[in-house]
Write a protein that binds this DNA or RNA. Structure first.
Ligand SMILES: [Mn+2]
Ligand SMILES: [Mn+2]
Ligand SMILES: [Mn+2]
Ligand SMILES: [Mn+2]
Lengths: 221, 221
DNA sequence: ATTCTTTATAAGGTCACCCTTATCTTTTAA
DNA sequence: TTAAAAGATAAGGGTGACCTTATAAAGAAT
């Protein structure tokens, strides 16, 4: 009989992903979760059931999965570790901004509490990750930022990029290439009809973003 | 049908352990391997078979397992990553010397080549870990150090501690408490009969070590 | 040479986590 | 209001990595 505990990494990735997709506690439909994790909806469904039995999530049919208090605590700790590592990788190791999410996504599961705290201290207790997102505190609290996706703006509005939501390395690389980065100011210069691209006026020039990519860019007006 | 590849962590730990136990390429009997990994010999046997099919190890009945060229390359890279992380944890994060082996043993599997090289550069390309062992180069080469276990010395001999072989946190903590650390000079002041303890004369005082612990302490005379 | 010990392996399981296909159930949009 | 789309789940599988309990084979010690 197998005596080892169930894989931490799997559980942590499910919880973190639920937290990321249901920002602020909105229910996440299993299909979205499966999509993001790159597994079949059936498998995700099974796993959600297991997580439910462990008291980490609650699932309401056709509404979605939400984190329990306990589940959210774990999720936020994972996010904390990831974002601390991202800071280290970017600030100290000078690694590619576009690649650190994935790298930190591996390190986050191999990081104990003691290590996370030492790392945080080493970094000077940073409050945001290189993508602009807040770093949860060690008690699991995460400040709710009031910011909107780029898709919510109208032509002519000026704003400042707050953060880039979690995505894949190639998307990060694209955004980086066109300097769509936290703290950059911009003006919305055009919004094409038929769900067409949104054109931004940045110091570095004009850039057109498709709607789904624009959804990842959170801004302050 | 499951499409994912077999867990990297498991493979890496098997290969690393074989490298550690069969220092310099000596065959490692499956029972020893199982013991160190904390699993049953039967399970280790099955896994060795799988590793053999993947061309990473060769097993000769009743003689032991050896790493293939490919297997050794992976093992040395894992060891490299672990020892680099150990340096970071001790030198930068100021973590407990006795605990870093275990911490780094988790990080080592979550570390890509790119990350390892960046880390090495950040640390100034160190050549030894905090336990005194050499750090393999990125090409997988590992200098064969000519040093002996403490158990090979005779009463009255003077020496210098070269390194502490991989062991558990509690053993590291014990050695640390009595200042049995790399680069410390000592004299063998007594060797009790009947496989009894070996007493060392250190700057910090006299310490008695059991034979199995003394086996872990490698020294230069 | 025989016995004891060590090592290896065959046989039969368990469990987590993934898969596909088929069948509901609910929501949504025409 | 009804059909289509989206979401959930039942049924049946697979694999890796572990387990225990035998049994076989080799090496060591008497
Ligand atoms: Mn991750
Ligand atoms: Mn980030
Ligand atoms: Mn390890
Ligand atoms: Mn070390």
């Amino acid at each position: 009989m197998r005596t080892q505990s169930t894989s931490n990494e799997t559980i942590e990735m499910y919880l973190k992903t639920i937290a990321e997709l249901g920002d602020g506690g909105a229910p996440v439909v299993i299909a979205r979760l499966a999509e993001r994790l790159g597994i079949s909806p059936v498998s995700a469904n099974e796993m959600v059931k297991r997580l439910g039995e462990q008291g980490l999530v609650a699932h309401v049919r056709y509404k979605g999965v939400t984190l329990t208090k306990n589940g959210r605590y774990i999720a936020h700790n994972v996010i904390r570790r990831q974002r601390l590592w991202e800071r280290f990788l970017v600030d100290h190791l000078k690694m590619e901004w576009s690649g650190v999410y994935e790298m930190a996504c591996r390190l986050e599961h191999a990081t104990s509490n003691v290590l996370a705290e030492a790392l945080s201290a080493y970094l000077g207790h940073p409050t945001t990750c290189p993508h602009g997102s807040p770093i949860p505190k060690s008690d699991g609290s995460l400040p709710l930022v009031s910011t909107r996706p780029l898709t919510a703006l109208r032509v002519g509005e000026k704003g400042c990029i707050h953060s880039i939501q979690p995505t894949t390395t190639d998307v990060y690389a694209y955004l980086n290439r066109y300097q769509i980065l936290p703290d950059r100011n911009f003006t919305v210069s055009e919004i094409a009809p038929m769900e067409g691209p949104i054109t931004l006026d940045l110091p570095s020039g004009k850039v057109a973003l498709g709607r789904s990519m624009a959804e990842l860019v959170w801004v302050n007006v």
